[in-house]
Amino acid sequence: MEEHSPLAQFEIKKLIEIPLGGIDASFTNSSLWMMISIILATAFLTLSMRGRAMVPGRWQSMAELVYEFVANMLRDNVGSGGRRYFPFIFTLFVFILFNNSLGMVPYSFTPTSHIIVTFAMAVVVFIGVTIIGFIKNGTGFLKLFVPSGVPWFLLIILVPIEVISYFVRPISLSVRLFANMMAGHTMLKVFGGFVVSLGLLAGWAPLLFIIALTGMEIGIAMLQAYVFTVLSCLYLHDALHPGH
């Protein structure tokens, strides 16, 4: 083990330096792993659907499973008019899923463990949803901030709360994904360090724990991809049907 700090795995390394005006647009290990996950996701979906068989094979049914999963999620959470946004939601889900899952491969890098990556995605969702809300409902979208059936003196307190909670959304959305990824990977590394330092005598206990933790981390990788997309769906629902 050459790196002893459990946080060393999150270090950004420049692979190709690209100074773009005053901006550092270098190609980093984070960009590399995002690209790998895009390439793998594209390859998985296009290659497995190449046959287009009526009775799907293993790969095709896996691709169809992902498609159906997202389609169901969109139908249940967005409802009417959500179908148009399927490509975006599907891309979001597959991108996060592949990034999270590839992070479980030893020696890999997890871009979603950086808050700037998850925050960028959350902000895209946030701005997009706000624009859609105003396009679809005009100023009626502002009804979202005024809960119905509440006396006026409570509105004075509730409206600021609703407005703040709307602007907190992209932050809670990004923090949730990033914190999960970072905490899990740090834990794995910390317990990995225990195994090495306790050696052959007592290292078995943390090793067993790591095995359980790895399984849980794989589950969390999928769960958090789901949570991120399902919340995006809920926000989209709010934008399409404000005023509950």
Partner: peptide, 27 residues
């Protein structure tokens, strides 16, 4: 299969805890 049934308990727990912490932190 969370798309069909309500959120799994774990997903729910994460949503709630992060919601409170982030709201307090941001404000």
């Amino acid at each position: 299969n969370p798309a069909r049934r309500p959120d799994s308990a774990q997903a729910m727990a994460w949503r709630i805890s992060v919601e409170i912490v982030v709201a307090l932190g941001v404000c």
